[in-house]
Amino acid sequence: MTYEQPKLNHDSEKFKNAQMAELALLKAYNLKEIDHWFTLKDGLRIRVSEIGEGKPVFVVPGNTGDMFPFIPLLSELNGYKFFIFNRPGGGLSDGMNHEKVNNIREFVVNIIDEVLDKLELDKVDFMAHSMGCHWSLWYAMSHPERIHSMNLIANPGRVMLEKIPLPLKAMTLPIIGNIAVKALVPKKRSQALNGLRRMGTSDTALKKMPQEFSECYYYFQNLPNYQMSTLSLLKTFNAKAENAINGKELESISIPIQLIWGENDTFASIEQGEKIAKSFPIGQFKLIKDAGHMPWIDQPKAVAEAVKTFLNTKL
């Protein structure tokens, strides 16, 4: 019997709370968003958020795939039309138990391919963050003909890591993982941004963020499928060695790639970032000072400038 991924009830109070929080954040940054809803071949209902006008850029978010953390960065990037792929398990798309997928790499490649087809994007620039970078690199290895260039932001998932970071390894353990992920879900609004602090984002930067940003984290992390999607994602990518990406695989990607790295990223060292960037045949490394794993929260203008410069010039 085929496993049916959990649906997200669009009429539920939790869905509406998250949706309203995101709309309020968009308003705070003077941005307008158009929703595209697609039901894919496997029955998953996926949301793609369209923001801006101009040259198209396809965005693959990190974590469980929420669009809203990118809003502060997108407000600094005029002249582009961003299509943000709210990955299954986040961003108001349906839930996702990644452990129920027979071949996660094949699934990732196929779902990105299907979404690009539905958006009628034959070839496009990519921008991705964290786990979204890992997904994007898998896709680039399979379909380089559909990508002009890639801006990868922060430690790109499980790439060239000889050892899994201890906090992530703990997540793969049955009992510890469940407890840890449950602890990540904020019980109070005051706890909503604790995860960003653990990833190297400064308190100074977080204090500058509008209240709507914190509200989004609170409501999205309390959606019914958040814990399952997060835990199954970490288990799937970190429990199986074949899901890692090695240096030889990176050497096979012949498209221009920029790796943007926060100086205080807690997932891996600057030296690791430089090593990854040097593995790309056409690659460059951009260090963002005084920034964490989500460097645009600390330094939105610096990250935006790096993205724009790369999109405009390539290598």
Rank of each mutant, 00 (worst) to 15 (best):
G79M: 05
M294F: 11
G79T: 12
G247V: 00
I257T: 11
E305G: 15
F237E: 13
E274Y: 09
N30C: 10
Q258V: 14
I297T: 07
M150N: 10
E271K: 15
N9E: 12
V109N: 04
M160C: 05
R197K: 13
I104Q: 09
V307G: 10
V48T: 04
G132E: 02
I257Y: 08
E274Q: 15
L234V: 15
V115Y: 04
K14Q: 14
Q19A: 10
V109G: 04
V57A: 07
V48E: 01
A180I: 13
K308H: 13
V303P: 07
R47T: 05
K7P: 02
S12G: 05
I175W: 14
K308D: 12
F58T: 09
V303K: 08
E249M: 04
C216V: 00
I288E: 03
A192F: 01
F213R: 03
K208I: 06
E249L: 03
L8A: 03
G157N: 12
A154I: 06
D113W: 09
E4I: 13
A244W: 01
G90W: 02
E162F: 02
M141F: 00
G95E: 05
A192S: 10
I164D: 08
Y217W: 04
Q19G: 07
P69E: 01
N222D: 05
D35K: 09
K100C: 07
A268Y: 11
L250Y: 06
I112V: 13
K301C: 07
Q227R: 12
D125E: 14
M294P: 03
T313N: 14
H98N: 15
M199D: 12
H36V: 00
Y139V: 08
N102F: 11
N222W: 00
F15D: 01
N194A: 07
M171V: 14
L311K: 00
I51A: 06
K16R: 15
S229H: 03
D125P: 08
P224Q: 07
N110G: 11
L168T: 13
N63I: 12
K308F: 06
K308S: 12
E263L: 07
S136F: 10
W296V: 08
Q227W: 00
L287S: 04
D298N: 11
A18C: 11
N9T: 07
V108N: 12
S12V: 01
I51M: 08
L311N: 07
